[in-house]
Design a protein around this nucleic acid. Sequence first.
DNA 1: ACACTAAAAAGTGTCGACAATCTTGGTTGC
DNA 2: GCAACCAAGATTGTCGACACTTTTTAGTGT
Lengths: 232, 232
Amino acid sequence: MANAEQVTKADGKALQGTQSLADRLFLSLRKDIVEGRMAAGSKISEPELARRFDASRGSLREALMRLDSLGLIERKVNVGARVVELSGRGLLELYDVREALEGMACRLAAENRSEADLAELRQMLERHEQQEELQAGTAYYQPEGDFDFHFRIVQASNNELLIDTLCNKLYYRVRMYRYQLGMASPRAHRAFREHSHIIEAIEAGDGELAEILMRRHIRASRSNIAKKLSSS
Amino acid sequence: MANAEQVTKADGKALQGTQSLADRLFLSLRKDIVEGRMAAGSKISEPELARRFDASRGSLREALMRLDSLGLIERKVNVGARVVELSGRGLLELYDVREALEGMACRLAAENRSEADLAELRQMLERHEQQEELQAGTAYYQPEGDFDFHFRIVQASNNELLIDTLCNKLYYRVRMYRYQLGMASPRAHRAFREHSHIIEAIEAGDGELAEILMRRHIRASRSNIAKKLSSS
DNA sequence: ACACTAAAAAGTGTCGACAATCTTGGTTGC
DNA sequence: GCAACCAAGATTGTCGACACTTTTTAGTGT
């Protein structure tokens, strides 16, 4: 089934079966950090982690390097690594970047739309609609459904660099914030309508409109969060 | 002097004096790849490179990992690493991403403009103007001047994630293309006027206009390249 | 009790060696 | 002659040990 764990083209190694130990460590640690099993801001001890995963420090360090360039941990020379600290400012920054990139992705998806992509998008929307009616506004489908939507739009952009930047880099940070600040936005129903309009624009091949709608969609989420942040 | 080699906030390690051997290898290799001393598409032999730099394979591999996540090399498990291959498509993709991100950076720079940033921007423009008059349309100042301009705008956006993504990641790819495809665009004079207008919009605090102008500026470069590519 | 110093413990950075895998060239069989 | 197969060489992945740095702790003196 289509969910947020799906694999990107660019993430090929995972498909290929043969993955190194360092690869597996990386994937495992990334999951632990994103889902909050490693507390944000906590220190990471290489020897301890290596023992826990029954691997050598060398392989573990390789995984840590990658987490570092993903921005999920921070390393200081001769001092060590810590899980990155979450902040309201960081979250808002993330939304500004997403607005720019996903807006562009949406425009490109509309301009290069292929029948296959369109079919998938329509199908996805239908699934979400059923799920929405089922749960009548309880806003429960959100996390996966919303993720699914944004993920697929980006895939349809047909721009490898854009896909890689969003799906293999930024989205892990997005999910980390979601898990830990538990943003189950109350915008479920409205969000669904917005998704629907965006896909219509893509179907119509109207890149400019598609971009505008996507940007507005993301910015609405952003203000929603900004409001919550300032009131706490 | 302000040039493209300047150090980003996020690239702090380089400032701090203490940098590990792997850090130095990384910086050195990145330079070699960007400036074309390692041919695009060529295979990288770990033992050979390690000998050449008089370092152990472990440290070298750490540097390679980082180059990989920068997208400057590609690694396959149990096979090895190659310098990334340049392609027309890749270059155009890069411009689409830049259009999105730098457009946003420009908007943010206009909205958050500080006196310090404005002063620097004006000062830079003045330097470029002098240089332009000096060389009266020979379009020679371009590479550094253009880079300087885009770099500083992004810095002024005050969005750490955006700054990191552009200055520490994408720009190295941009420079790699510049060096190797030798894009000394003939748009020097027009580009200068465009830069000038963009900074005016930022000074005026008009984020929307600043974004539009920057996007148009980058898209003009992009079509220029697309034309050259299709005619070859 | 507090500040400063020095030793020791822990942690990170670097290295060389071994094991597993891929590539290459030659060989065999059809 | 060509394809499949096999062995040798080379390359990558993984590991444990050592060197250097940072942090902690114990001690000393005021």
